[in-house]
Each structure stands twice: as C-alpha cells, then as structure tokens.
C-alpha cells in the first residue's frame, strides 16, 4: 500500500513547483504566446477578408469595364449608323441638288437657245426682207428701165383711177 500513500515531501515539492511554474509561465509564456496567437489569427483573418474584398472589387471592376465596353460599343455602333445615315442623306441631297441644278441649267440653256433662235430668226427675217426688197427693187428697176412700160403702167393706173 506504499504505492497509494501520498508522500508529504512530494506533495510539498509538487505544490511549490507547480505554483512557480504557473506563475512564471503564466506571466512570461502563456500571456505573450496566447496574445501573439490571437493577434496573428486576427491578422490572418483580416488579410483573408481583405483578399476577399479585393477579389470582389476586382470582379466589380471587371464587370464595370465590361459594361463600359459594351456601352462604348453600342455608342460606336450608334455613331456609325448615324454617320452612315448622314452620308446617305448628304449623298441624296447632293444628288437632288445636282439634278435640280442640271435641270435649271438645261432650262436656262433652252431659254437662251430659244432667245438666240428668235434673234436669229428675226435677223434672218430682216435679211430676207432686205434681200426681197433689194431683189424686188432690182426686178422693178429692170422692168421699168424701158420708158414705154412706165407710161403703160401709168396709163393703166390712171384708167383704174376713176375720178370721183
């Protein structure tokens, strides 16, 4: 029964040693170690949450970029479409105005031609009249070169004229 009889000396020394151990370790080991462990745990946790936040931020930025890109593309398409429309419009307008101008010029040319033709016709008429008069004069002159014919004509004319 020696085995289960506690020895007072060992009880005493165990108490002393344990008390010293708990005091010294508590002050110089457990406190700083536990503090350091929880400190590190906190820092790891915050680092992880920061990484998570950065990832989210990244995803947000990416989606934002994509959105922007999509918008930009849409805008570009819109601008291109508008430009094309404008081009078509301008071309059409130009065509219209060119046509109108052409028509106007043709009209003017025709009027000019008509005018010129009228002038030319008048000129021709005058010349024909002059020519006819000259021809007539020359014919008459030829016919009335003979004095007798002139007398005959005067006589004729005098016969026609009846005194009233």
């Amino acid at each position: 029964m020696d085995l289960v009889t506690p020895n007072i000396g060992l009880v005493f020394w165990t108490t002393v040693c344990f008390a010293i151990l708990i005091f010294i370790l508590g002050k110089y080991a457990w406190k700083p170690i536990l503090a350091a462990i929880s400190e590190r745990e906190k820092s790891i946790e915050s680092a992880l949450s920061m990484a998570e936040a950065a990832k989210e931020e990244m995803a947000r930025l990416t989606s934002e970029n994509e959105e922007l890109l999509k918008q930009a593309r849409a805008e570009r398409d819109l601008i291109l479409k508008e430009a094309r429309k404008m081009k078509d419009q301008i071309v059409a307008e130009a065509k219209d105005s060119a046509q109108a101008e052409g028509a106007r010029m043709i009209e003017r040319a025709r009027i000019e031609i008509d005018n010129q033709k009228a002038i030319a016709m008048a000129d021709v008429k005058n010349q024909v009249a002059t020519l006819s008069l000259e021809i007539a004069e020359k014919v008459l002159r030829k016919q009335f070169e003979d004095q007798k014919k002139q007398d005959a004509l005067v006589a004729d004319l005098l016969k026609e004229v009846k005194l009233k």
């Binding site: 085995l3 289960v4 009889t5 506690p6 020895n7 007072i8 060992l10 009880v11 165990t14 108490t15 344990f18």
Partner: peptide, 11 residues
Amino acid sequence: NIAVTGTLAVI
C-alpha cells in the same frame, strides 16, 4: 505517483 496526481487534483 499518487502524491503528484493528488496535488494536481487538489488544485
């Protein structure tokens, strides 16, 4: 040793 375990138990 029962003295050691006993001391711890009393604590």
